[in-house]
Every structure is written in C-alpha cells, then in structure tokens.
Design a protein around this nucleic acid. Structure first.
Lengths: 349, 349
DNA sequence: TATTTCTATGTAAGGGCTTACATTTTAAGG
DNA sequence: CCTTAAAATGTAAGCCCTTACATAGAAATA
C-alpha cells in the first residue's frame, strides 16, 4: 500500500498533487494547515496522500523555511540518573508541543565542548538545551558568538546573557544540614562536589552557613573532596570514618556519592542510620531503591527539563525577549537514612 | 567573529566561495573531502570558512543527496535503567562512526506505535533502531511495509525479515534457577514479566525447565504475575510471602521487580539473604547500589546497543544483505542477595 | 611549439518543500 | 446577468547543498 521505492519515502508532494488533481502548493497548504483551502479539496488531498503513503520530508520543509520541530540537547553523557531525569522532563514537554529530540553527547568529542557547540547549530535543530554543568570560560565565549537559541539547564551564566533554569542549591544544602543539626548531630561530615561548578559551591556554602547559624564550629577535617561520582563518595566515606572523631552524620553533595558513602559505612561494619546518618542531594530514582531508603534534598529535575524546553520555545518564538533565569525550589525528603546520633557520640572532644 | 545573522547559521557555501575566490562547487568538494582540489585552494577555502564561521547545513546536504549521519532510536520511554543502558551502548558506537542520535519515544503517540513508525521515516534519519519490546502484529505489519533500514533490539521478528539483536533469555533464567537449586532451595518463587513478550516467556520457560531437570515439582502458587515494574514486584513479593509455605528464594524476571520484591521482604521483617534469597535479571546499574547487592543475570545491554548500530549500518551500506539475528550470551553475576535456605525451611510439606 | 591527456575548477540542474505573487473561480452586490 | 471583491488555487522562485557535465589550465608527449 505504501509505495516506497528505497530508503526513505520517495513519495513527494508532487505525487500527491497529481493524484489529487491539484498543485503542489495546495498540498503544502493542506499539510501545513493553512487557511484558504476548500474543505473538499483538503479531503481529496488527504485521501491521495493516504493512498500513496506520503510522509512529509522534514529536511526539505525546513530548508524551505518551514518549521522543523526538533530540539537538541547537549549532555556530557548518559552517565548518571541525574541527567536521565532531566531528559525525561524534556521529553514530556517536547511531546506536548510536538517536537522531536536530538541527543548530542559531548564525551564524543573529548573536552572540546566549545567547538562542538558550533557544530550543533548545523541546521538539524531549532534550538539547543545545554546540560553541561561545567561551564568553562571557553564554552561561555562560544555561547556568546553562537547566536542560536539555547538554554542552560542546571547552570547559570552570571553574565545574564543566557536563558537558564536552575535550583536552589544553597538553600537545599542549608536545609539538609539544619535537619541533621536538629536531629542532634554536631559532627557532620560533608562530601563536596566538583568545586568548579557553582552548584557544588553553593551546596558547600549552604552547609557552612547552617553550621555557623547554629554555632557549630567548622572542622575542616570533616570536609572531604568528592567529584560527584560514586567512587569518590566511597573513598570520602572511608576517610571520614577513619577520623579520630568520626562524624555521626554525612551529607554528600549528591545522591550518587551518598550511595558510595553508604557502601563505605557498611564496609566498616557500621549501621545506617543507627550508627551514622547520611543524606544526599538530587533525589534520583535510586534513592528509594537503596536500603535504607535515602533521605535527600529533592531537586525538581524533571521540572527543570520541562521548563528548559519552555524557555527555549520562548526564544524561538520571541527572539526579542530578554534572557531570564528561573530558579526552582529544592526540598528535603525524609526517608530512612537519618536518625539522632547514638548517645556515646554525643560528647564532643 | 562568526558572522551569523539570526537563528541557525546564515553563512552559506556561497559566502565562503566568494571569500575564497572560488566557486561553490569547490567549497563543497573541500568539505566533502573529495579528491581533485589543489592543496593551495583547499587551505584557502578552509581559511575562508574558518573566518566566516561556516558550518555545513546538514539538511541541505542531505536533501542534495549527501550523507546525513543521523540514526534514530524508537523507545517506549526513558522509564527504566534497562533502556538507558542500551542507549548508552548505542551512543558509544555512534560516536565511533560519527553519527548523531535522534530519540523518539512512543509514549507520546499513545499506543499508536505502528503509525509512528511511518512518521519516523521522515527524512531526519538514515535508519532506525527499534527498542520496542512488545511487537504487536500491527507493528510487525508496519515494519513490512516500511522499506526503511531498521533493526530490532532485544526483540526478534520470527518471520526472519528483520535484523535484530537479542540475548539468551531462556538460558539466563535456567542458570539463575539452577544456581538457587544448587544452593539448596526447593521452593523458588517466580515473578513473571509481561508474558506477551517473548523475553518474558523465555525466562519463564527457563525457570520451569530447570525445575524439571532437577526433579522439583512445579507449584503454581509460587508463580506470580508481574509486569516488569517495581510495584508489581512488590505486590508479587507480598503474595509470595503470604503463602502457607512461602518460598525460600525469589527469582524475578527483571531487576526492577526484584527490587520491589526486596522491599516487600523487608516490609515483612525478613532478612535478605538470611531468610530469603532473591535474584533478578538484567543487571542494571542499580543492582549494585541496593543493599544487599543484587545477584542477577547479566544481559549485555550496552553491547546490544552497540551491535544494533552495527547491524543498522550494515543495512545502510549494503541494502542487499540478508537479515540476521545476533544472540548475545547472558551470565549469572553472583553478589550478596542469595545464600542457602535457612534449615527450618528445608522440610517440604 | 602543437597536440593530447590529465587535473583543477566552474556551471547548472536538481532535491522536496514553502510562500509571495499572479491568476482563476466563486460568491456577493447591483 | 454583469461587476467587484473575496476566496481558492496555481506559478515560480528560492532554501543550501551535491554532482554530472563542461571548460579551462597544466603537464606530458610528440
């Protein structure tokens, strides 16, 4: 029934026009839902198209100035649940507005993200969502020159030239720390993220500020570096546990590291949360599949994806609009990985 | 420096040609690495392009008969880790051959996968990878008519008309069951997948056959229906535990359900694996972040993705090649969720 | 140097579509 | 029924490339 010859669909608008006895322009009008086509003609065209198995060639349409309805998303990789959550949100919103999604992973081109950006503006998409946590200055510069609609997801360009969505990292970290303090913890270990990222920095600051606000002295030995990967969480956990006065709670800058820390804790034969509490950040799906279920700061990842799409759409439709940043709230999700510290630890040396 | 005007890159091949003082055809030749361009001319063109910030418009290239280097992948959604793993493999291989990836999620169009298939062949991709576990007959029919390169991942078209990659589901299930039997288990609960899927069916058959081979009577009350989702695993687990003679081990048709079952077991205040063992199927990343770490059947998900890409490429390059199915081996990964059954359970009523 | 043979480059025709503008048809008004 | 305006349809140019074919220039042969 579909009369295709070879790869892709060789049935063109002309074939349909001939079949329906109209001009190609009319067929185009029908498929673009333009006004001014008689109802009878419209159905005749539709029938002809149906019969021949016509499918619009999006390339040609786009070349000729029509809409493509494809957005791109640039991500470092499918590495962790965090990014997948964002993409899920993007996908949801894209479905609503009937766009397709093109995925570009930067790891392909090594660290050459900046030049990849240029490449990405090659005509296959109408705009691009950037989920690249680490905004190098080179990348930022490339962004300036690109003159192509884009929005940053979970990153902000302090120059104010970019559309972006992000979350209240500082606030979330503050709340997490405060929660532990209110449970009675005084020695709270902290595993940092990659401190070049503003999100990591903000979380660190939130932790510090909460400590200060509650007059808890800051002990640098309780702060250990991580890189957002599970392994670093494990190693940081080990380091923390090896301390002369180990913490009674650990706050990791993201869930994946929290998972690593939990492994380290169990490897040391300690119980969670009886012996030591842990809280994460992100609330990735895995946070509920661990045991005990992880108490963490929820980031509205899906929503960030959805809003990213909306912002990009806004730019495509109103290029004149001024850039804006939307900041989404984070909140504490209490599950099973925290409780007050065991009494013996209460004494602070 | 890049002299772009508006959305997308308005610098064309003509601009570059003018700048370099050559014809547009020559510029095209340079960018397509065609032979017969003097070295001096080539560098002149490259410099001009560099200066103007020229980026090829892939749409136009493709329309004009050039290569696009984009593959599509049709998936039900980003739902579970299983699909993400496959995509990761696809992405890896695509990077090697320098293709881009377009993602189509079917949930967008409701259950109308078959017609979506038609749409997907719209010129934006050169071929499509199908990760649609549930091959409806309607879908299969659509496949016949599509005349567009595609390959099935983790599904086989028994008609032999399609290229496909899959894994040894039967074999994996057999091995999992056998492992439990050898540990001493006699009452082994089984949580099925969606039995319309051949993979679910094969796993079921593997379980049954292993039991028979070891002369263990089949108890239908130990077999409970699941749908590959976590919730169904939880409920199935509850059901199994509520039995007068509950199983000493549970084998779930996939990891996600195994996770659900583990929750149910803990909710019943039983320990894993001391009181009850559990094994899953798939080996998704989460299998190692649960506690205890899940013993499971490893499916080479990433490799399936990679091979899917290779098969698709083969079709694109050699349309005359006959369809083939590649079956990958699964294997048991022993972690911490199994041990011999507690003695008290040894007595079989 | 004249002739032949390559090699390097240019010319022009699409590829499938959209859209401004031209033309025809239809409906409305007189 | 004729005129006029509005609605429907057609014509043709152009989007940015690739590529067969034509042409000019360089190298090789006689």
């Amino acid at each position: 029934m579909t009369m295709q010859k070879n790869q892709s669909n060789p049935v063109t608008i002309y074939d349909v026009a001939k079949e329906a006895g109209v001009s190609d322009a009319t067929v185009s009008r029908v498929f673009n839902n333009k006004a001014g086509v008689k109802e009878a003609t419209r159905t005749r065209v539709l029938n002809a198209a149906q019969k021949l198995g016509y499918v619009v060639n999006l390339q040609a349409r786009s070349l000729a100035g029509g809409k493509l309805n494809v957005m791109g998303v640039l991500i470092p990789g499918l590495g962790n649940g965090y990014i997948v959550e964002i993409i899920r949100g993007i996908d949801q919103e894209l479905a609503r507005v009937d766009y397709e999604l093109m995925i570009y992973t930067t790891h392909r081109k090594g660290n050459n993200e900046a030049s990849y950006l240029q490449y990405v503006a090659n005509g296959l998409t109408e705009g691009i969502l950037l989920v690249v946590p680490l905004l190098s200055s080179e990348f930022l510069r490339a962004l300036e020159n690109i003159n192509y609609p884009y929005t940053l997801i979970d990153a902000v360009d302090t120059s104010g030239r970019s559309f972006s969505v992000s979350a209240t990292n500082w606030d979330g970290a503050y709340k997490a720390t405060e929660y532990l303090i209110k449970l009675g913890h005084r020695r709270i270990g902290f595993i940092t993220g990659i401190m070049e990222l503003s999100s990591a920095k903000d979380r660190y600051d939130g932790y510090i500020t909460a400590l200060k606000d509650y007059h808890i002295p800051i002990d640098l030995s309780l702060i250990v570096k991580g890189d957002f990967q599970q392994d670093s969480g494990y190693m940081a956990g080990q380091k923390l546990l090896a301390l002369p006065y180990p913490p009674t709670a650990i706050f990791a800058s993201n869930d994946v590291m929290a998972l690593g820390a939990m492994d380290a804790i169990r490897a040391a034969n300690l119980r969670i949360p009886q012996d030591i509490s842990v809280v994460g950040f992100d609330d990735i799906p895995q946070a509920v599949t661990t045991y005990p279920k992880l108490t963490t700061i929820h980031q509205p990842l899906e929503e960030m994806g959805r809003i990213g799409v909306k912002l990009l759409l806004e730019q495509i439709e109103h290029p004149e609009n001024a850039p804006k940043n939307i900041t989404l709230a984070t909140h504490l999700v209490i599950r099973d990985s925290c409780q007050p510290p065991p009494p013996k630890h209460d004494a602070y040396p």
